[in-house]
Computed example of a mutant assay.
Amino acid sequence: MPVKIYKRGDIWHFRGTVAGRRLRGSTGTGDKAIAQRIAAEREAEAWKGHLDGPSAVLTFAQAAALYTQAGKGDHRTLRMMDFWKTTLVKNITEGQVRQAAVTLYPSHKAATRNREVIAPTQAIINHAASLGKCSPLTVARFKVAKVEKIPVTWEWVQAFMRHAPPHLGALACFMFLTGARISEALAVRWEDVDFTARKAKIRQTKLYGEERFAHLPAPLLVAMANCKRDRDTVFRYVERDSVRKSWDSAVKRAKIAPLSPHACRHGFATAMLHAGVDPVTVAKRGGWKNVQHVFATYGHAMEDETITDRIVSNTAFLPQRNYGKA
Rank of each mutant, 00 (worst) to 15 (best):
T87L: 11
W190K: 06
K149P: 00
A119H: 14
R189F: 03
Q96H: 13
A180Q: 00
A185D: 07
H167W: 01
A140D: 14
D192K: 03
F174C: 12
E191T: 14
K146V: 12
V97I: 15
V188N: 05
L168A: 02
L221G: 08
I182A: 07
W154I: 03
S135G: 00
V193D: 02
I118K: 05
R198D: 05
A180M: 01
L216A: 02
E94L: 10
I202K: 04
K90G: 12
P165R: 11
W154T: 02
A200L: 09
I125P: 07
R98P: 05
V222T: 11
E211N: 13
V152G: 06
H108V: 09
Q99R: 14
I118H: 06
A197K: 14
A128W: 09
A159D: 12
N126E: 12
L186W: 06
T112K: 12
T103I: 14
R212H: 06
R141C: 01
G132Y: 07
A223Y: 04
C173A: 13
S107I: 08
P219R: 11
L220F: 05
V222C: 01
Q204P: 08
K206Y: 08
Q96E: 15
A164N: 04
Q204W: 04
A164Q: 05
A172K: 02
P165V: 08
L186F: 05
C173W: 00
M224E: 09
F160G: 04
H163C: 06
R115L: 12
T121Q: 08
Q204I: 09
L186N: 07
G209C: 08
R98H: 10
L221P: 00
L171S: 03
A200D: 11
K146R: 13
H215E: 02
Y208L: 00
A100H: 04
A218D: 14
P166I: 06
H215W: 05
G169D: 07
E94T: 15
A214C: 04
L171C: 03
A187Y: 08
G132S: 05
E210G: 03
E191G: 09
H167T: 01
T205A: 13
I150E: 12
P217V: 02
V152P: 12
L131I: 02
V152W: 08
V89L: 07
V117Q: 10
R181C: 06
V193G: 01
Y208D: 13
R141I: 00
T138E: 15
I124E: 11
L88K: 14
R198L: 08
T153S: 15
Q96M: 15
R212F: 05
G95C: 06
P136T: 11
Q158M: 12
G132P: 02
R181W: 06
C134A: 11
A145K: 09
K133L: 06
A187T: 09
V222H: 04
V102D: 10
L186S: 06
V89Q: 09
T121F: 07
L168E: 03
A159H: 11
Y105A: 13
M161Y: 02
A170V: 04
D192Q: 03
I92C: 10
R98M: 11
K199D: 03
A187M: 08
K201N: 08
T196Y: 02
L137F: 09
K90H: 10
G132V: 04
Y208A: 15
S135I: 01
V147Y: 01
